[in-house]
Design a protein around this nucleic acid. Structure first.
Lengths: 114, 114
DNA sequence: AGAACTGTTCGATAGCGGTCGAACAGTTGG
DNA sequence: CCAACTGTTCGACCGCTATCGAACAGTTCT
């Protein structure tokens, strides 16, 4: 049986390879989570702490969304003192669900000239 | 303003071009709807009526799911007597959300040799 | 016309998930 | 050591949606 999740410094992470399409779609069907993903894609790895995202929800809710993203293999977090640094698992997730991340990242962009 | 939906023989259809990523993900986040899409992809256009899908839900619920798929631009329906024939709007939807449909269709497939 | 069939609509219900404030836990800096 | 800060956990709440049976509307066939 494959390992379902592993721990990175005490945080429950799931490998994108173990994630079902159901889980992936559910995770990305939330606008707040997509916003986190998009923001993260525009930054260097581990350059952002959870608190620096401009989200229209409370701390508690934000924390919940980060947990979902970790559990879906979209996010990797490491501790840096009291803060938590985030990294989008771009390549890994894209390998599991080719093109899906691209759709999310294209969402904020100016519409293509038609 | 762009036309939000059009009518095809009395049925409210939405063009994939008018669909948001939010709506697309919500539509495909349901296993019953993905099942419908997958079944439809394996058949010729307009070769299946609503009643011939092997779904684990009631008639009423199935009807609801077909309506959602129409509203998301995934499905086109035409009447044939008392029956309704279905067609997956493959090319149109894929043009709007490249790769998304492919992920759904790959879902049922045997896992690639690893 | 009427029976049989297909699909939709209508309430009503149940459960899941997003949301919040408050309390908590860990870490750092004064 | 203690205040301040960051993020998680805990209940609780609420709205949305999937679900159902029953009633309805159209069509076809006898």
């Amino acid at each position: 049986m494959a390992t379902k999740s592993r721990r990175v410094l005490g945080l429950r992470h799931t490998d994108p390879g173990e994630v079902s399409l159901q889980e992936a779609l559910e995770a990305l069907a939330d606008p707040v989570r997509r916003s986190i993903v998009r923001t993260l894609a525009g930054e260097a790895d581990f350059a952002r702490t959870c608190g620096t995202f401009d989200l229209a929800v409370s701390k508690a809710t934000a924390s919940h969304h980060f947990a979902v993203l970790r559990a879906t293999g979209l996010l990797e977090q490491v501790d840096q003192g009291p803060r938590r640094l985030n990294r989008l698992r771009r390549a890994e997730f894209d390998a599991r669900f080719p093109g899906l991340l691209a759709l999310v990242l294209a969402e904020g962009e100016p519409a293509a000239t038609h």
